[in-house]
Amino acid sequence: MAKNKAQDDGSWSKLIRDIVVILLLVLGIHSCVAKPFYIPSDSMMPVLRNGDRLIVSKYPYGWSYASVSFHLAPKTEGRLFGKLPERGDIVVLEHPVTRIDYIKRVIGLPGDTIQLTNGELSINGKPVKREVQPLLAIPVDPNLPSMGSSIDRFITRGADGREMLELPIVRETLPGGASFDTIDMGPGYTTDDYGPIKVPARHLFLMGDNRDGSADSRVDTSQKGLGGPVPFDVIAGRAEIISFSTDGTAIWYNPLSWFNALRSGRAGTDLRPERSSTAK
């Protein structure tokens, strides 16, 4: 009897050790290599949609306390093998105050002077190239627009009776050649005028692609914004690719609904911006 009990105790201790090893391995991969990320809002529309699942790489900018998943590490200064992002990169970061995960685009690097006038962005005194695009039509679903989103004003109904979003798109090209689409909902938003502000050393200026619906570096922390340029150390990783996207109709206890909820054409989308070598 005592022998069986000893065997049972040994089995349990081995199981616990195995679980701990697996958890440490997952934490290590999430913190040092890559981790999944879920988009919960419309702040990065039109590139990212509520319901997108991404792969975020952890190594392109080196590692800091923000690289550790689940916000387990104490705040410390500095990065191991640190390398600044490029303008146009989409990054995941810990909010400097709340430590909640955010996802935004890098607009300004250390030493840049950032200004917005009537919604038009300038970097170092030069207006960023803007090209108005045709309206972007996207089907409305339970995940889109997200609850409380400002883009719901663009909901219309198509000839087939289905609700659609018809979004006003402006394509921007930053110094260095990164090009991407943004949403510009027109005048009248408090974030349309900002600065000028110079980005301090080891800081980055971040903005959402949904320019009039993003709590980013233009917005005070009391309004869930980033409160200006953020320290480089809060950057956790770079968004690389959409793994899959769901429309919000899935029911957890019905596996068939999981497949029906998948949005077609989203999986495999590369999130690195197009870059022109001729842009300055």
Score class of each variant (00 low, 15 high):
58 K>Y: 05
52 D>I: 03
60 P>C: 06
48 L>W: 07
34 A>S: 08
49 R>M: 12
81 F>H: 04
81 F>W: 14
56 V>P: 05
74 P>T: 13
100 I>Q: 14
49 R>W: 04
108 G>R: 06
100 I>L: 13
46 P>M: 13
76 T>P: 01
27 L>T: 11
97 V>L: 15
73 A>P: 07
74 P>L: 09
100 I>P: 01
48 L>N: 00
42 D>M: 00
49 R>T: 04
67 S>T: 07
83 K>C: 09
84 L>I: 11
26 V>M: 12
91 V>A: 14
110 P>A: 09
80 L>G: 01
97 V>Y: 11
58 K>S: 14
93 L>I: 15
47 V>L: 08
90 I>M: 12
47 V>Q: 14
59 Y>H: 10
35 K>Q: 15
59 Y>A: 13
59 Y>L: 08
41 S>K: 00
99 R>K: 14
27 L>Y: 05
50 N>F: 01
109 L>I: 04
32 C>F: 15
27 L>P: 03
44 M>L: 05
77 E>G: 07
26 V>S: 08
39 I>A: 02
68 V>I: 15
29 I>N: 06
105 R>W: 07
76 T>A: 14
60 P>M: 05
70 F>P: 08
81 F>Y: 14
99 R>E: 12
73 A>V: 11
109 L>V: 01
72 L>C: 10
94 E>Q: 10
85 P>K: 06
37 F>K: 09
72 L>R: 13
108 G>I: 01
104 K>A: 04
96 P>L: 04
41 S>A: 07
93 L>F: 10
27 L>C: 03
62 G>N: 14
104 K>Y: 08
95 H>L: 03
77 E>T: 13
81 F>C: 11
26 V>N: 05
34 A>Q: 05
43 S>T: 05
26 V>K: 02
67 S>Y: 03
32 C>Y: 15
39 I>Q: 01
26 V>I: 06
60 P>R: 06
70 F>T: 08
